[in-house]
């Protein structure tokens, strides 16, 4: 029996403590934002927040989550009332197929919670674990910059690296 909080609601889950969070979210709780991409922690599609940090839920066993707080993208807002980062992604139309985007949003959320004034380099480095195959990267970065501004921060240096 493992007790954890998901989007503010306490859950008591029994079953295999090894089962990665991703399958619980998608198949047991009907939370579909986190996606299966690789099951190997290589692509970031399944990223959620655990205690405010970006974590790949496909390699996070339930047993690792006892007493911890999980936030999925569903917990950040709804289509009618999107969260700050979600709104920034909508404003930038930062999606093509959209499959990777919930993971991107979770990762951006974790970054901006830790530091609402990241540098361009630290933003890219924070987003690096997440893959996008459609090539939506430029819009995703724009959305993160926009979200940082909306949170009262911003990207501290220009987008062009020093020569």
């Amino acid at each position: 029996m493992i007790e954890l909080t998901i989007n503010g609601t306490r859950h008591r889950l029994d079953g295999d403590p090894a089962e990665p969070l991703l399958y619980i979210l998608r198949n047991e709780l009907g939370l579909h934002a986190a996606k299966f991409g690789c099951g190997l922690g290589q692509c970031g599609s399944c990223t959620v927040l655990v205690d405010g940090k970006a974590v790949q839920s496909c390699i996070t066993p339930l047993a690792a989550l006892a007493g911890r707080a999980v936030t999925t993208v569903e917990g950040l807002g709804t289509a009618a009332a999107p969260g700050v980062v979600q709104q920034a992604f909508i404003d930038e139309q930062a999606a093509q197929c959209g499959y990777c985007i919930p993971g991107m949003i979770a990762r951006a959320e974790a970054l901006l919670r830790a530091d609402s004034r990241p540098t361009e380099a630290s933003m890219r480095s924070a987003m690096r674990p997440s893959l996008c195959r459609c090539g939506t990267h430029m819009r995703i970065l724009r959305a993160v910059r926009r979200a940082a501004m909306a949170m009262g921060g911003g990207i501290v240096d220009p987008t062009e690296p020093a020569s």
Binding site: R26, N27, G30, L31, H32, A33, K35, F36, T72, V73, E74, L76, G77, T78, A79, P82, Q86, F89, I90, Q93, A95, G98, Y99, I101, P102, I105
Partner: peptide, 16 residues
Amino acid sequence: IPPKLTGAAAYAHDMT
């Protein structure tokens, strides 16, 4: 986009 960004079952992968 808004449903995809907020967890709607948007893909074949999400069907139940």
